[in-house]
Design a protein around this nucleic acid. Sequence first.
DNA 1: CGTACAACCTCTAGCGACTGGAGGTTCAAG
DNA 2: CTTGAACCTCCAGTCGCTAGAGGTTGTACG
Lengths: 133, 133
Amino acid sequence: MDYAIGEASRLTGIKVPTIRYYEGIGLLAAPARTEGRQRRYRVEDVARLNFIRHARDLGFEMADIAELLALSEGPDQSCKKVDEITRRHLSEVDRRIAQLTALRRELVRMVDECSHGRVGDCRVIETLSGETA
Amino acid sequence: MDYAIGEASRLTGIKVPTIRYYEGIGLLAAPARTEGRQRRYRVEDVARLNFIRHARDLGFEMADIAELLALSEGPDQSCKKVDEITRRHLSEVDRRIAQLTALRRELVRMVDECSHGRVGDCRVIETLSGETA
DNA sequence: CGTACAACCTCTAGCGACTGGAGGTTCAAG
DNA sequence: CTTGAACCTCCAGTCGCTAGAGGTTGTACG
């Protein structure tokens, strides 16, 4: 009733070396081993890996994921902390979107102003060469 | 009429080790040296460093920057290539914004649906644990 | 002209979050 | 019992720097 690392990998979409890496950094507890020292994962371990993958997909940092994982193991605690981590991450995402949007604006401006002639007249090159962007 | 690496650093806002790193990866040509093997940069070198910094600020990849730099040195070429690189980068930025926006939506949903009770009932934890996000 | 010391030099290692390979062992199906 | 896919560990590489050790050079001041 348990899974080899390759099965765990297929079930979660996390690559085999990455699962081992997660174990190495202490994100995932070391699983039981066979006599030949091969890892054998239980359903809960696979669930934890799925949790990690979803959190990674949502862009949470490893430290946050470790904390969320720990919190999820204690179902009777208040989820205030969970909320806090998520909100913090949300504002970080907002910040990144804002930054990329500003950057996008600048790129669009450069491309729009480009007269498509010689490099010597190119607004893109000109902007990049300018004293201050 | 030339600059030590520290002066080049101050003029461009690029840290000293980073300038050396750029030289190491071939992004910036190796400058002249004093008899004691210290680097001496000319105005053009400093201009190139400024160019690099602006391109980095706009999120261009190193490979793109190398190409843009090369293109900027030949002012009579068509700026078609410049345009192409910029547009490619722009669509990458768009892609990243779209991804972050989708992610943001999901985070907001999770936080909104959270009843702020026990972890066991927390929608955030539930979503992260789900088979497919 | 001598000296102090800031700034320079090279080399190496480290970051985060993996990814890939070499070289060797184990599991499980046939 | 054999075969070979999957596993094991360890090490190196990715990207774009950053930091440190330990040693040398440039320059300003007396």
